[in-house]
Computed example of a mutant assay.
Amino acid sequence: MPPLKPQASYDDFARLDIRIGKVVEVQPFPRARNPSYKVGVDVGAERTMWSSAQVTNYEPEALLGSLVVCICNLGPKNIAGFTSELLILGSKDAGGKVIVLGPRSEVAIGESIF
């Protein structure tokens, strides 16, 4: 278990645009150093944002249509020539597989996390 990180202020948290998104497209990403997909996410901002996501333990069909929690304003990051615009949140299970975080109930696409 990693140690706790240094304390952040509420203002630090409030600057993050964390919201519910819906996975609308999943593409292979063979150029990525670590096994990854290019994942298109509808975040309710009238456009699809893209992420490089190391979630290949899921079949693409299992991700399509799923609701995810993501951070939309970390800024673009170039990953193997691909612009990743948002971060899909996840955690590892006991076996080391990435588990994508999502709501337990139906929530509107674009809804803010607080």
Rank of each mutant, 00 (worst) to 15 (best):
41 V>F: 03
96 G>E: 08
81 G>K: 01
15 R>D: 12
87 L>D: 12
10 Y>R: 13
8 A>M: 13
27 Q>C: 13
70 C>Q: 03
34 N>E: 03
61 E>K: 14
63 L>D: 01
104 R>P: 06
35 P>N: 03
95 G>Y: 10
61 E>P: 04
49 M>N: 01
59 E>M: 09
13 F>M: 10
9 S>A: 06
11 D>R: 09
93 D>V: 10
31 R>L: 14
29 F>P: 03
113 I>S: 02
52 S>H: 01
51 S>A: 15
27 Q>G: 03
63 L>V: 03
59 E>P: 00
63 L>M: 08
64 L>R: 11
108 A>H: 06
78 N>L: 11
100 V>Y: 01
54 Q>P: 02
40 G>V: 02
20 I>T: 01
1 M>C: 14
82 F>Q: 04
3 P>E: 08
103 P>H: 10
12 D>M: 09
102 G>D: 02
63 L>P: 02
97 K>Q: 15
11 D>H: 08
23 V>D: 02
61 E>G: 09
11 D>V: 06
101 L>G: 00
7 Q>Y: 06
11 D>N: 11
86 L>G: 00
79 I>S: 08
73 N>I: 04
55 V>K: 00
24 V>R: 05
111 E>S: 13
2 P>D: 14
113 I>W: 10
57 N>M: 06
19 R>M: 09
5 K>W: 05
60 P>W: 05
109 I>D: 05
6 P>W: 09
47 R>G: 04
85 E>T: 03
110 G>W: 09
66 S>N: 05
37 Y>S: 03
114 F>E: 14
66 S>Y: 00
68 V>A: 06
30 P>N: 08
85 E>N: 04
21 G>T: 01
26 V>K: 01
54 Q>T: 05
36 S>M: 11
67 L>F: 03
107 V>F: 05
51 S>I: 03
73 N>F: 04
